[in-house]
Simulated assay, not measured.
Amino acid sequence: MAKTQQLAAELTLTSGAKQTVTSTAAWTSATPAVATVSAGGLVTAVSAGTAVITATAQGKSGTCTVTVTDDPESLAVSPSTAELTVS
């Protein structure tokens, strides 16, 4: 699973035209203990949980909800041995 994710911010103008503002938007994380976001919209996982990332440009805001999960550390199979018979 990825530790980072690049987000994009795009304004829709009244004319219907689209304008990419990823590099000029102001990016914030509501929960930086879970996920941080760079000035360019690159989100980095920090710890398990949920964080809302907000991009703001030209007085408009948009959000992305990021869920960070723990990587599995180990796998146990139970029972560790089994004895079967064929009849």
Rank of each mutant, 00 (worst) to 15 (best):
L7R: 06
G16R: 14
K3M: 03
V52N: 02
V46K: 00
T20G: 05
K18Q: 13
D71W: 04
T54H: 01
T85P: 06
L7F: 13
T44Q: 11
P32N: 01
S15Q: 01
A51N: 08
T44K: 14
V86S: 15
P79L: 04
A33H: 05
T44R: 09
L84M: 11
A25W: 08
S29K: 09
Q58K: 02
T4K: 02
T56Y: 02
T24A: 12
A30S: 10
V77W: 13
S74P: 05
G40C: 03
V68M: 01
L11F: 06
S23L: 15
D70F: 00
L84I: 13
T44A: 12
V86G: 15
T63V: 00
T65A: 04
Q5D: 08
V43D: 10
L13R: 01
T85V: 12
A55G: 03
Q58S: 09
C64R: 15
L13H: 00
T20A: 09
A76H: 00
L84G: 04
A17D: 12
T36K: 11
A48L: 01
S47M: 02
P72Y: 02
T67Q: 10
A26E: 07
T24H: 04
T28A: 08
G59E: 00
D70E: 15
T69D: 04
A55H: 05
I53Q: 14
A2M: 03
L42G: 05
A33S: 15
T20P: 03
T67K: 08
T44E: 07
A33T: 14
G40R: 09
G49C: 02
G40F: 04
T65G: 01
S61F: 00
L84R: 11
V43Q: 12
G41S: 13
T69G: 11
T69A: 09
L13Q: 01
V68G: 01
T31E: 09
A82T: 09
T44S: 14
G62M: 03
V77S: 12
T12F: 07
T14N: 07
S23I: 14
G49D: 02
L7N: 08
L75T: 14
Q19Y: 10
T50C: 03
G59V: 00
W27M: 10
A45R: 00
A30L: 14
T20I: 04
T22I: 03
W27H: 07
S23Q: 15
E83G: 09
G59A: 00
A51G: 06
K3Y: 00
S23V: 15
S87L: 13
T85D: 15
S87H: 06
T36H: 06
T14K: 07
V77E: 11
L11S: 05
T54S: 04
A48I: 03
T28L: 05
V68E: 03
A82E: 05
V68K: 02
T36I: 05
P72G: 09
P72Q: 12
S78I: 08
A30Y: 01
T28R: 05
V21H: 10
V77H: 11
T69I: 09
A25G: 07
Q6L: 01
A2I: 02
A2D: 11
D70L: 04
E10N: 13
K60W: 02
S38N: 13
T24V: 14
D70G: 05
T28H: 01
T31A: 10
S74Y: 10
L84Y: 08
L7E: 10
P32V: 00
S23W: 12
T85Q: 15
A39R: 08
E83Q: 13
L11I: 07
I53Y: 08
T81V: 15
